[in-house]
Design a protein around this nucleic acid. Structure first.
Lengths: 338, 338
DNA sequence: TCGTTTTGCACAAACGTTTGTTCAAACGAA
DNA sequence: TTCGTTTGAACAAACGTTTGTGCAAAACGA
């Protein structure tokens, strides 16, 4: 017998008070409106008895407050973003809000659709790692007053605050490390070419290579996926002049590489050196523990949420564009050659 | 200038028609209500021009339809659940619904709170891997008519449908594999002891051990986390009689183990054999590729969503309790001894 | 005793939709 | 011309809250 959902009216009747009184008590405004202790108790008690669950939709409709912030990421199945989702979720709950998470699967269309959905749900803030390079919609939202913070991916020339890693620096560190170990023929397998982090990393890689006087380097690939890493590594291995080292721009790509290498019976770092962006608990325990560039994801999330809630409460943000320093975690996937 | 949010009334005015007409056109009910082609065009055009975004809250309030299903999992940072989230999300979107994801962080309180939140948001269905053993709240919801499907974790004696892996069988397979390789002193590091999958796995492990005539086996640990695996392995290694093999009940636990082993300069499988529940792309590329019991997560998600939508449309479900077969993926972490 | 202040709460109007009902105009048939 | 029928759309009542306003009753002061 699907008990009809109880509402505030039922409670009012049962408790013998008015609707408004119920509303105020249940919203903790009893003091403010001087509701007697007796009424308060009565109301709370019947609410519990009737199993009352407030209807957020109705509440939001009237008040405009949804107590919801949205997180929009390109791919939950990417451990980097799964981590972020987990952290943001916890951080947001601590502040009494709830998170709705959207996964755009790296598709512009889905991202836009999700963005719409979230608007429809009157979110009060948005944390996004935009996969769409076309920022007009996002910018419009921001200008309409929706607090937005970009993480990981961002738009350099927009005034939307962002928190990310200094990807350029990270790539320079990684590339230099390879160069210092005598490598000259270094290939780079990238992820989504249009994304800012990817572009910065590529820039870092290129500059480091050119600074070392190397002109002909190879950049291949187009996705932050295992499949992409696998495919591109396979192709690289078919080249006449095999690279002595490979720099992958995500750990998913790195796994793909290892799969390809394993199939060709090549080992890291003996036959080929490997270095990757993004850490992962597993990286330490691989056949050849992978040297990597780690991003401070926890810090990124904390700052992003801090900023978001600053905006929500109209506080000033001193620095709108934050790039945190990555670190090189030395393991054993780079061989000294030459 | 935060352009006031446009609503259906604005459109009606601008287009010179009534509110209801706008609503019907925008909801694709133009045919049904015989709205002229001209009006339709006019309405759609002005909606676009004014940048109209429907207010779901208002719509839902009236219609009772939220087009939302909820996914509640114990931990997004666990790759197993991250995968599930990703798959469910995609599957649900394909059916024109959207998913809101909740992460309870293995906390009963948070789970209950999230459950409340979701009720408040008038979800139409729920997919949950319940961490709370107290099913009364969930059961109440189910009896009130909310379609619910449990995945991974479930309640055996409830009529709430579930889709999971035959964890018992998986554990038996793993344990037998160790036994067949001559191991007698096999320890098991478990996850959350009260969770059904954990209990089934333990049952499988125990029965296989006893069937082999082994009485004194060790079950330790209490969380599906890296830390738990690390700590328990450390302790196991301090025992007088070290186990020759360890069976871990999740890959997070397995990583923890490997960390401990590495610190003690022990290697798998030379010094100790290791087998784990749950696959992961990385497992293949570890120093000693880990033999594991894989769960058909994709299949689990697909079936769960199929069932959920059956319930949503009042179709009959033939089989309410589904346990899919796991598979043993042989890699190189088990040594033949004795 | 009678004003005045405080206390405690009820009333009713929103919020932006959906949807059942009603109705005018246009049309066609007789 | 008149009447029935279709076509196209307007009206208005919800949905379950929140919140500004208003007003008794109680308490108090003189």
């Amino acid at each position: 017998m699907p008990a009809q959902k109880v509402n505030i009216v039922d409670i009012a009747k049962e408790a013998g008070v008015s609707i408004s009184t119920v509303s105020r008590v249940l919203n903790g405004k009893a003091e403010e409106f001087r509701i007697s202790e007796k009424s308060q108790q009565k109301i709370r008690e019947t609410a519990r008895k009737l199993n009352y669950v407030p209807n957020q939709f109705a509440a939001n409709l009237k008040s405009g407050k949804s107590n919801t912030i949205a997180l929009l990421i390109p791919s939950l199945s990417n451990p980097f973003f799964a981590d972020i989702a987990s952290e943001i979720n916890a951080e947001v709950r601590n502040r009494g809000y709830i998170t709705v998470i959207g996964d755009s699967d790296e598709s512009n269309d889905i991202e836009n659709e999700e963005l719409m959905q979230m608007q429809s749900r009157n979110i009060e803030g948005l944390v996004i790692a935009p996969c769409n390079q076309n920022w007009t919609d996002l910018k419009k939202l921001y200008d309409q007053g929706l607090p937005i913070v970009c993480i990981d991916r961002y738009f350099e020339n927009l005034d939307i605050p962002f928190v990310s890693t200094d990807n350029y620096e990270g790539a320079v560190m990684a590339t230099k490390h390879l160069l210092e170990n005598g490598h000259r023929n270094i290939a780079c397998i990238q992820g989504v070419p249009e994304s800012v982090p990817n572009k910065s990393r590529i820039r870092g890689y290129e500059e480091a290579m050119r600074a070392a006087g190397i002109k002909n380097y190879r950049i291949v690939g187009d996705e932050f996926t295992v499949q992409n890493g696998y495919k591109e590594m396979k192709l690289l291995l078919q080249q006449k002049e095999r690279p002595t080292a490979v720099f992958t721009l995500s750990n998913t790509i790195a796994i793909g590489c290892m799969k390809a290498l394993r199939e060709e019976n090549l080992s890291v770092p003996e036959d080929i050196s490997l270095i990757t962006f993004d850490d992962h608990p597993f990286l330490d325990y691989l056949a050849s523990p992978l040297t990597c560039v780690t991003q401070p994801t926890g810090e990124i999330c904390r700052i992003a949420i801090k900023y978001l809630f600053f905006m929500l409460t109209n506080k000033e943000i001193k620095q709108r564009q934050v790039l945190l320093k990555p670190e090189l975690k030395y393991r054993k996937s780079v061989k000294k050659i030459g």
